[in-house]
Amino acid sequence: MSDQGIKSKPTYSKIAGDKAARYQLLLVEGAGIPSEAMAEGGDPSAFETWTVAHASALPAAPMMDEAPGAVRPFRSTQHLLSALEERLDRETMGLRLYAIGTEPFLWDAFNIASAAGLSRQEMQFAHAGPKARRIYCVHCRTMMEGVTTSIVTCKGCGAALFVRDHFSKRLAAYMGVQVDAEAPGEVPQAEELYK
């Protein structure tokens, strides 16, 4: 059950940095860099780092430098992602983008970066934090955040959805498919799998 053998399930590595980069920007969905997300020898002081404080009280004089070693805290994930869009819009070639966080965060960042013209070759992702999934109901297109179980009831249409490993990069979500479509009412027990 834990491995459904589906190839679109993303895999992640640690952040190693890229010596060829002209400039490196690291996004962290949290207040600090989790040490387990960095590859051995990876040096975050070479990156400009953006963090999420999840707080309205930011340092009185936040460091706003666009320079290696600068750490810039944001109030929220959404705050960071919207600043990313604006920043990438005026960036030039040679940038590498790294992100550490939950899967929805990583792939939201991926989609913003792709729209700005970065290729996967210019990004590195490390998965950290809860493994809860963003689920897309393939029947009614409702998105559900924070799903931790193998079966979930769709908030949009009420269908009992099987949480597949089938992942859409475009939607930054896993697919939920009605589990009792062929035998109505036969819904397996939900298991807590994605914590």
């Binding site: 002209r22 990438l88 960036e91 030039t92 070639m93 040679g94 940038l95 700005a116 013209g117 970065l118």
Partner: peptide, 9 residues
């Protein structure tokens, strides 16, 4: 020339 190209060039 190469240094001033926007992302995605």
């Amino acid at each position: 020339l190469l240094a001033r190209q926007p992302l995605g060039t």
